[in-house]
Amino acid sequence: MPVYNNIKYIQESIDSVLSQTYINWELIIIDDASTMNIKVVLDDYLCDKRIKYIRLNKNSGVAAARNKGITLAKGRYIAFLDSDDLWLPNKLKLQLNFMQKKGVAFSYTQYRYFKEDDDSLYKIIPIIKSIGYKDLLRGNSIGCLTVMLDKKVITDIKFPGEKHEDYILWLNILKQGIIAYGIPLDLARYRISNTSITSNKFKSLIWTWKVYYSNQKLSFLKSVYCLFCYIVKGIIKHK
């Protein structure tokens, strides 16, 4: 769980982990050199030995914070939760059972958006049963807060220091021949704030173009095609 100056919602996010019906988890909170005293609101939580708090000496961005957490994680499976998002109680249990039963290394689930300071929910974000590299190029349907990865199979899990870092990581993993499997269950909540990336569509399109053309090294025409598909999928996703 990366955090930067988020005192307002981080307790809700931690509570959603504590509420999990699967109890053998480890929560690593990475403080990305916040200027606020994040630890003061975490002291009561740190009595739980499953919760670790690490503060970075320098603000390095969400990718670096997540990567630090990955290197410190002791478990076989890795899951991601930002400090303002939520997991539903059965998230870890159902997802882990699915992966172990099916022998899956990469899974993700459905989720819903909800507005900042508003309990109203948007529709369930649709997912597909399975997705490979070529399919994912046409649009990112994988919510970072829903992902679970098996480190035993996917040995190189590292977010790049670029925008849309989660999308790039998923592409890099699937490029190796891994298939991501979707679980048709609504198990998480993504909070939309006025400053969230989700609310800045124009910048997001520029970053997505760079994912295709600069990072994935697609041709100009292929990048245009993928960006068009990405836009169409985004319209359907938020309709």
Rank of each mutant, 00 (worst) to 15 (best):
L81M: 08
A65K: 08
Y181S: 09
G139V: 10
I124R: 12
I142L: 01
R66Q: 11
L205D: 11
K163D: 13
M1V: 13
L171M: 13
K175G: 01
D166C: 00
Y133C: 04
D150R: 11
N5T: 07
W209F: 13
I78W: 10
Y9I: 00
Q100R: 10
D84Q: 08
D43V: 13
N67P: 08
K201A: 10
I38R: 09
K175Y: 05
T146H: 10
N6T: 05
N5M: 07
I10W: 12
K68C: 12
K210N: 14
C226Q: 05
T109P: 02
E26H: 07
I78A: 06
D43N: 14
A79S: 15
L27E: 02
L185V: 10
Q100G: 00
Y22T: 00
S219A: 05
D48V: 08
Y4C: 05
L227S: 08
L46T: 12
P126G: 04
L171S: 11
I183H: 04
V232P: 00
E165A: 08
D31C: 05
R76H: 09
K237T: 14
L205G: 03
T198K: 10
S16W: 09
V153T: 14
I157L: 11
L81H: 12
L42N: 07
A180R: 04
E12R: 14
I168M: 12
K233H: 13
W25V: 03
S83W: 06
A33N: 15
Y212G: 02
I28R: 06
K102L: 05
I38G: 06
D82L: 03
D82R: 06
V147C: 09
K91N: 05
I142W: 04
Y213K: 14
Y111C: 08
Q100Y: 02
G177N: 03
I10D: 06
Q20M: 07
D32H: 08
E165D: 14
L88C: 02
I178R: 00
Q20R: 02
R189F: 06
G234Q: 11
R138P: 00
I125F: 02
N6W: 09
N57A: 07
K151A: 04
W87I: 01
G143P: 07
W209A: 07
K222W: 02
P2A: 00
D15F: 07
Y181T: 06
N37R: 08
F159K: 03
N90M: 03
T198E: 13
S196C: 14
G139D: 07
K39H: 07
T208E: 13
P160K: 13
K58Q: 14
Y22H: 12
P160D: 13
G182T: 08
R55Q: 14
S196I: 08
L121S: 03
H238G: 01
K58C: 08
N37F: 02
R66L: 10
T195R: 11
R138F: 01
M99H: 04
Y4V: 10
I127A: 06
N59K: 15
M148V: 15
S13E: 09
S196W: 03
Y122R: 10
Y213F: 15
V3Q: 01
W25K: 04
K239P: 01
K217V: 05
I173V: 14
I128L: 07
F220G: 01
I168W: 12
Y190T: 00
V224K: 11
G132D: 15
H238P: 00
M148I: 15
I7K: 15
G143S: 09
I23R: 14
L121G: 01
I231D: 05
L205P: 09
C229W: 12
L149F: 12
G161S: 12
N59V: 05
K175V: 01
L18G: 06
